[in-house]
Simulated assay, not measured.
Amino acid sequence: MAKPLSPDLRLRIVRAVEDEGMSCRGAAGRFGVAPSTAIELVSEWRSTGACEAEAQGGDRRSARIEGHAAEILSLVEATPDMTLAEIADHLFKVHGERFAPSVVWRFFDRRNITFKKNIARQRAGSAGRRR
């Protein structure tokens, strides 16, 4: 992933346009950046008075399911043996938002919530392996 432009370079581009009267394309050529970059920097400077880089990367997809965190946790507390697919189905029926079971699993994984297997639910061992 490309690194953001340094704050110093951003300010030099803006000053070239604002103080020296250069065009955005001229400033872009002088500093070796794309014209669209210079145009966006100057536009941001004029609207907000700053031209700082925004944070890069990070999780952009989990915000949807995190909005239902309290409901999901209360569902699991009320019905501990509920499957991931059942939780996803519940969210679809109640809120109309579709989540894959893997998204529900990642929700629990981010919170380090694990569910231990219940001995009463384990299958019988394979035939012929008696102790």
Rank of each mutant, 00 (worst) to 15 (best):
T79R: 08
G128H: 08
K93C: 06
T37P: 01
A63D: 07
S36Q: 12
R60E: 08
F99P: 00
K3Y: 09
A120K: 13
S47A: 09
P101R: 08
F108C: 02
A38P: 01
T79A: 07
T79Y: 03
R10H: 06
A2C: 09
A88S: 12
D109A: 14
A127F: 12
G21F: 09
G26E: 15
I13K: 02
A34D: 15
R110W: 06
F115I: 05
I72P: 00
L41A: 06
E77N: 07
S102A: 13
A63T: 06
R12S: 09
R61W: 14
P7Q: 13
K93M: 07
R46D: 04
A85S: 15
R131K: 14
G96M: 11
S47R: 12
G57F: 04
R25C: 06
A85F: 10
F107N: 00
A127C: 11
I87W: 01
R98V: 08
V33R: 05
T37R: 07
R64V: 08
R46C: 03
S6I: 07
S36P: 00
I113W: 05
L5R: 06
A55T: 11
M1V: 06
A88F: 05
A88V: 04
L41Y: 04
I65F: 04
F107G: 00
G128T: 07
C24E: 13
R46M: 05
T37D: 04
Q122A: 13
R131P: 14
L73N: 02
E40G: 10
S43P: 00
A55F: 06
V104P: 00
G96P: 02
V33F: 09
N112M: 10
D109P: 01
R110A: 14
V104F: 05
I119W: 09
V104W: 03
K3A: 14
A88C: 08
V33C: 11
L9P: 00
P4V: 04
D109R: 15
D8F: 13
G29E: 15
P35E: 12
M82Y: 01
R25D: 12
M1K: 07
A27H: 02
I13D: 02
A100S: 13
W105Y: 13
V104C: 04
Q122S: 12
L91K: 01
M22F: 14
W105P: 00
A27N: 02
R129L: 15
T79S: 06
A124N: 11
F108R: 01
P7W: 07
E77W: 03
G58H: 02
F108T: 01
F107P: 00
A78R: 11
A34W: 11
F31Y: 15
V17N: 01
L84T: 03
W105E: 11
A120C: 05
S6Y: 06
G57C: 06
D81R: 11
F108N: 01
I119N: 07
A100Y: 12
D89E: 14
G125M: 13
S43C: 06
E18T: 08
D81Y: 05
P80G: 03
F31G: 02
A85M: 12
R131M: 08
L9D: 10
R110L: 11
R46V: 04
A55C: 06
T79N: 07
I39H: 08
R98F: 10
L91Y: 02
I119P: 11
G96E: 09
R10C: 15
V42D: 01
A34R: 14
T83W: 05
R25S: 12
T83C: 03
L91V: 02
E71I: 07
R106I: 05
A127G: 07
A50L: 12
C24A: 15
A85P: 00
